[in-house]
Nucleic acid binder design. Structure first.
Lengths: 367, 367
DNA sequence: AGCTGCTAATAATGCGCATCATCAGATTGA
DNA sequence: TCAATCTGATGATGCGCATTATTAGCAGCT
């Protein structure tokens, strides 16, 4: 039959001390000036060993304030059925950080995904409260919901840059601008002049940043920006040929593999005739195993950094700090502005899809 | 500024009722003969809506209620860094089920993965208590830990068949035996006689079940069982050629792709000269895109079914039911034995790696 | 003896919630 | 008219723990 759990009180009884003493021994630190003699300490530890006592986490949390649980809210299904999982690398990083922090991760799956996106409905958002704080992943966030989070001072961190709200939203993002700039630099160093940008217009942050990087870099090199924005991959390939581009930078969602196929079909080989640089992670690995040149997004690190940041925000807002602050109002905020908005470098990927333009002087090969 | 959590007491104050009343309204059922008028009920619900109240799961658990949180414990890292994610499909199914049940999923990431496997240490296993129940994934479970779970009557469900404990462990598994038998049947129907089994010996359940299926099916057809168990893929291929097998069944962890390569190198083509059937999910997609013949493991469904089962166990074992049972000892267990051990069918995959044996009469092609 | 200072421990409190025992008031029955 | 019943709600309690406030005991000093 269900054995009753061993509690601190049981341990205390066996050791001939009070429950409080057991708690002190277990926590080591004694906030007030409480002291425990080495002898008593050993008696308690022995009793713990004999009884096999283990703390009840629910009670610990109730008493302590923090649950040691951090939430993860994804605006789309976390584990999508069809496509390659987008969240996977982030979660890997998050899991790793969670281990190090000793916290558990709560996935908010109770809010249903409707229409491909998960809404932070009243019920859904209320459940956020079960975690000490929350990570937010995905593009399709909802303004009103965010406002609510800000208003209630609920600790959260976005994964992915959020430029829209005047710096009020904490995030850990990737440097798409810088990454894109470096790709252009690379091409120019190889001797390329006619460099096109292939990608659909969009208002999402990565797209805006890629375009910004492209514009800035081209301008800095005194080159003309040329955008190719076509629904059809075949048409895009045709346009590239028509415009006699020697290189293009492509957003990963623009089917680079198919694009390369179409180019080959038109007698242009990659990278011999046209260099193709990918501005971010490819959605699928290449058929022939050779990698795309371009830059990669440090998704695992983003996940980990975001969780660390969240953890800091939480403990700053936590009950202990709360009390400390009441006593000493001058205490500065522990989390600095710089920490609140982190942009991580996107490392270059050497890859196999970049080469000097056809007919370039041999010297241009070695930048 | 300080964001104190909204509690039932706050809600009660706003609605002009007692905390107990709020609790009753929230829980719907009223264990004792307590009644709440519709009007009061609405006032409370309004106050909840306005304040955005959320129950504190720790307190709920401590007080003996349900937190609507189900845990997922994986014996290996949930999101592995390098290899293809093994847990992915399971989690997809789990997430889907969680949505339908309206529960959140707690990943027990606080227990660190040491040596490739996560231990349900003293501390770790404590933390299970936050969730109402828990799903267990992975091969490397630890006996003592499981015993502890059983002793304390904590609700849990294994994903993957567990034959070892005399039917005391609830699980949702896959029918490797039946799947393997059907593969042999398939081959025999095609006219194959010399059918080898390629795979390393092991004590894990899938391996035991594959071997059992192979043995039973070969025996039923009056054929001789032949095992190939070699570390080296090349040696395995050589053995297959030597033994003049016309077909082999292979466990997915035995590098079937490399095996096929080695066979080709020795002048045996798949499937023209040797049919190869895979006993489970391939670890990697095939290079040429054509699928392995064999059977697949319904991992998503396993995840979903396991979560549903766990949900049932939880509500059966919940504090409410507990008390009901005390009053009426004759009440039958709500979860039947059959539900406790579910074996799901592994659907055949047609694939492109099976054919009649070379030199077989044409009629044998159409079973 | 009276006081201070120090060590070692305990009693008491509250975290937020579910639940049991109880109670006030309204309605009914005889 | 007064007890019996029913309705609608409240107060009190405890879950197991962390933490604060308090006490008991004792040595050293004046």
């Amino acid at each position: 039959m269900p054995r009753r759990r061993i509690t601190q009180t049981d341990v205390a009884a066996m050791a001939g001390v009070s429950q409080a003493t057991v708690s002190f021994v277990l926590n080591g630190s004694t906030p007030a000036g409480v002291r425990i003699s080495e002898e008593t300490r050993q008696r308690v530890l022995d009793a713990i060993r004999i009884t096999g006592y283990t703390a009840n986490p629910a009670a610990q949390r109730l008493a302590g304030g923090l649950a040691q649980i951090l939430g993860v809210f994804t605006y789309e299904a976390t584990f999508p059925r069809a496509s390659r999982d987008f969240y996977g690398p982030f979660l890997t990083g998050i899991e790793h950080a969670a281990e190090r922090l000793g916290v558990d991760i709560l996935l908010f799956t109770s809010a249903p995904v409707a229409d491909g996106r998960r809404r932070l409905t009243r019920d859904g958002w209320q459940r956020l409260g079960v975690a000490d704080g929350c990570l937010l992943l995905g593009q399709h966030e909802h303004r009103g919901e965010l406002q609510h989070l800000l208003d209630t001072n609920y600790p959260f961190v976005f994964i992915g840059k959020r430029g829209s709200d005047g710096g009020r939203l904490p995030y850990v993002g990737a440097d798409y601008v810088g990454g894109t700039v470096r790709q252009i630099d690379r091409l120019v160093a190889h001797g390329h002049q006619r460099i096109g940008y292939v990608g659909m217009r969009g208002t999402d942050q990565p797209t805006l940043d890629r375009v910004e990087g492209y514009r800035d870099a081209m301008k800095a090199h005194g080159l003309t920006t040329r955008f190719v924005e076509l629904e059809d991959v075949a048409a895009t390939a045709a346009e590239i040929v028509d415009q006699r581009f020697t290189a293009v930078v492509v957003a990963p969602e623009n089917h680079p593999e198919e694009l390369a196929d179409e180019l080959e079909r038109r007698g242009r080989r990659v990278p011999d005739d046209v260099s193709v640089l990918l501005l971010g992670q490819p959605h699928h690995p290449r058929r022939d195993g050779r990698q795309w040149s371009g830059f990669s997004v440090p998704r695992e690190e983003m996940g980990a950094r975001a969780l660390y940041l969240l953890s800091r925000l939480v403990s700053d807002d936590g009950p202990r700090r709360e009390r400390e602050r009441e006593r000493d109002a001058r205490r500065p905020a522990a989390v600095t502005e710089a920490e609140l908005h982190q942009i991580l470098v996107c490392p270059d990927v050497e890859g196999a899809t970049v080469a000097p333009p056809a007919g370039a002087p041999p010297g241009a090969d070695a930048p």
